[in-house]
Design a protein around this nucleic acid. Structure first.
Length: 412
RNA sequence: GCGUGGAUCGUAUAGUGGCAAUUACGGGAGACUGUAAAUCUCCUGCCUUCGGGCUCCGGGGGUUCGAGUCCCUCUCCACGCA
């Protein structure tokens, strides 16, 4: 008996996209679905009840952060992640592989894993001692050493260690330990890292299957390869033939060719297993991901942007700090069915941000979560109805029109 | 009335002779994609053909090559003494 059962119920004609259901021991996920990020066993500023009301089906937490604080043994003793955090639905845990990037190559830099265009000046040409010592995550012989950002203590993660922690955390879906590379890395480094990730994937899987936990928790392998077609395809072929319950697509992307990279991978991965696009959640990327066969997504954008005053609307994102909203008594996004839009105005939310009231973060996060969750729900509905292409076109035209208008006004 | 200390670009501050001004907050805008993030970046006297130009440290006057900074005087504020 597999802990994860995936059923595809509908497909987008002549495309890789599909709708289905992922069954876990803590409930079903109707796919495609957007999964919210609750790194430290909480979605920042939002309660589980509020997440439920926003239509959230599952939560993804982080192995590295929970291992450091409060400790995975504490969470195991508390009955597992879901019970600990009062979330009865499906849960996932990321392996700590993202921290190899965020606390490694990206540490102390303004560097996103998604870059708009590959800038040759960004490429890392040599790896100096100074370059290495500046990071909190360093690649070792068969794992990664982390210097805790909390207290400076040293921790070594291997594939086995990450899975052991994830077993203790007790989520329904785990991810193999991987190396999320920087988009600034050279191709030769991407290739080296890819092979390392493949070795770790095999070890993650072997360790997982050797434990009883593999009967109740599913494990996803992670495909890497940066923006290189041959590496992505090689990775999909290698990871895709391993006995994982599903797959994550991770790593660095160039914004322009992300959907192409996803397509390369999903054409190769076994069709019958679920695919999760790690850390991607902007509207355009979600449409492209779904169209190219991604079943689930997670992303911090909705909640992080929300806390910082960025709000999604059907006419494009807006910044609640802008002076023009101070006396705007309309909802954040007219037509939105979220708690925030049903009960509060832009003027009020604007006031809360300016007054530095913490409720601002809650209201904006609830709205953004509902906006993105609902967007993906609608994609699912339109796949089932056979109208995905039309829906995508209609939404994106309206969503990006505002940006275009601003551009024109700015140039005049 | 006398004495002392103050008055600096929205607010609070730094600045005691040298290219007219520090920092914070406030204000304006931008960024944010498996969360080192309720964070970060830029702008914030006026004008600009983006080279620069003009104005500026309570008011007025003076010393000086040069003053927010020194001197005189006026106004206002705080504290103390009458």
């Amino acid at each position: 008996m597999k802990p994860i059962k995936f059923t595809i119920t509908h497909k987008i004609p002549n495309k890789l996209g599909r709708a289905g259901v992922i069954k876990t021991l803590h409930g079903d996920i109707q796919t495609p679905a957007f999964i919210v990020v609750g790194t430290k066993a909480t979605v920042k500023a939002v309660s589980p009840e509020q997440l439920r009301d926003a239509g959230v089906q599952a939560i993804l937490a982080n192995t590295y952060h929970l291992y450091l604080q409060p400790g995975d043994e504490i969470i195991r003793g508390a009955g597992g992640l879901g019970k600990f955090a009062n979330w009865s639905g499906p849960t996932m845990t990321d392996s700590g592989g993202f921290q190899v990037f965020s606390l490694g190559a990206a540490y102390g830099k303004e560097l996103s894993k998604v870059i708009s265009i590959t800038d040759p000046s960004l490429l890392i040409s040599e790896r100096t001692d100074e370059f290495e010592s500046a990071r909190l995550a360093k690649i070792g012989a068969d794992g990664v050493s982390f210097t805790s950002h909390l207290d400076g203590s040293l921790h070594y993660f291997t594939a086995e260690k990450s899975i052991e922690i994830q077993h203790n955390l007790g989520a329904d879906i785990l991810f193999a330990f991987d190396e999320c590379t920087s988009p600034a890395e050279t191709k030769s480094y991407q290739e080296e890292a890819l092979h390392r990730t493949h070795r770790w994937a095999k070890r993650s899987l072997e360790y997982h299957l050797s434990k009883e936990n593999s009967k109740s928790q599913g494990l996803y392998g992670i495909v890497q390869g940066g923006r290189h077609e041959d590496l992505r395809k090689e990775s999909a072929a290698v990871i895709g033939t391993m006995d994982f319950d599903g797959f994550g697509i991770g790593g660095s992307f160039a914004k322009e060719d992300m959907s192409t990279a996803v397509k390369w991978v999903n054409e190769i991965l076994p069709e019958g297993k679920p695919r999760h696009l790690l850390g991607i959640g902007e509207p355009l990327d979600l449409f492209n991901g779904v169209e190219n066969g991604v079943d689930t997504f997670d992303c911090v954008a909705a909640t992080r942007m929300g806390r910082n005053g960025g709000v999604y609307t059907r006419a494009g994102p807006i910044n609640m700090w802008n002076a023009k909203f101070i006396n705007d008594c309309s909802p954040l996004d007219s037509g939105c069915d979220c708690y925030t839009c049903k009960n509060y105005t832009r003027s009020y939310v604007s006031h809360l941000f300016r007054a530095k009231e913490m409720f601002a973060a809650t209201l904006a996060s609830i709205h953004n979560i509902r906006f993105i969750v609902h967007l993906v729900e609608k994609m699912r509905e339109n796949i089932i109805a056979g109208t995905f292409d039309t829906y995508k076109k209609e939404f994106l035209e309206k969503y990006y029109v505002q940006k275009s208008l601003d551009g024109i006004v700015g140039e005049v």
